[in-house]
Every structure is written in C-alpha cells, then in structure tokens.
C-alpha cells in the first residue's frame, strides 16, 4: 500500500513552481546581503507536488550546519549549501510535518536562546548550584 501511494504521488504532474521559488530565494539572498533584510518562505502555503518538494530540497542540499531541536516534537534546521539559506522543518510528536520553511537569514530565530527561558535557567542554575554546594558540605562533614 505504501509503495502504491508513493507511486501515485510521484506520478502527479509538476506544478511548475520550483523555478520561480528558486528565483525568489536568489532575490531574497541578495536582499539579505545588501540590506540585511530577512525573508521566510512558507512552503506549506505553496502548491508543490511531492516530487517538486524533493527537487527543491535536493537543489538546496546540505551545507555546514544541521541542528536538531526537541520542542514537542523535533525541529530540524539545515543550512543549505548556499550560506544564508536555511531549511526549517517542524515535526510534532507523531513525526507529522507541521511546518516547513525556507529562511533566508544569518540564523533562524528558533535556534536562539529565548529571554524567557534564560530567566528560568538562571533561577534553575542558582538552585542547582545551591544543592550541589549543600551536597559537598554534607560530604565534607561526613569525612570529618
């Protein structure tokens, strides 16, 4: 059944949207270089056949960076072989694709540590250091 579905999808005719999309990416990259203007292209909103999506991903390829983020399902970030062009795929916990984007930027926003999370981290690290220092004191007292 799975093989049949793949066959059916791959048989579908092309929408012809790959080439315009690649030109859009090229234009966005030049805007990033010239004006530091970031662009995000939401692939889910574009009609692309499965084979065209694969064609786009193959064209972009893999560059130097790949990041996995675990946030209620995986998020995969791949810098394409064109520096500044990133592919971001959000999965849910059932490994269903929830979002797929091409970012033209120096670093996709989701990879950055978030201020709200850092505030919580500070509180956690203070508490953990406190626990560790208590633990060390207890061990020293036992040794004495």
């Amino acid at each position: 059944m799975t093989e049949e579905l793949i066959f059916m999808t791959s048989n579908a005719e092309k929408t012809g949207n790959v080439m315009p999309l690649l030109h859009q990416i090229r234009h966005a990259l030049s805007q990033l270089i010239e004006r530091q203007e970031q662009t995000t292209i939401d692939l889910r909103r574009l009609p692309l056949s499965a084979s065209e999506e694969a064609q786009l991903e193959a064209f972009l390829g893999h560059g130097e960076v790949k990041a996995d983020i675990q946030a209620l399902g995986d998020t995969v970030l791949i810098e394409s072989r064109y520096a500044g062009v990133w592919l971001e795929i959000h999965y849910n916990e059932d490994v269903e694709i929830m979002g797929k984007y091409v970012h033209i930027c120096t670093c996709p926003p989701i990879i950055k540590s978030q201020p709200e999370d850092m505030v919580l981290s500070l509180s956690n690290i203070v508490s953990d250091i406190h626990s560790l220092s208590h633990q060390s004191s207890d061990e020293t007292a036992k040794e004495d």
Partner: peptide, 14 residues
Amino acid sequence: SRRTFLKFCATTAS
C-alpha cells in the same frame, strides 16, 4: 519552553 511556544506560533501562523 518559550522556544516550543514560538514553534507553535510559527506553525499556527502558517
């Protein structure tokens, strides 16, 4: 986490 929330917001905006 805030990052998870941002992921949710990105997919919902889409």
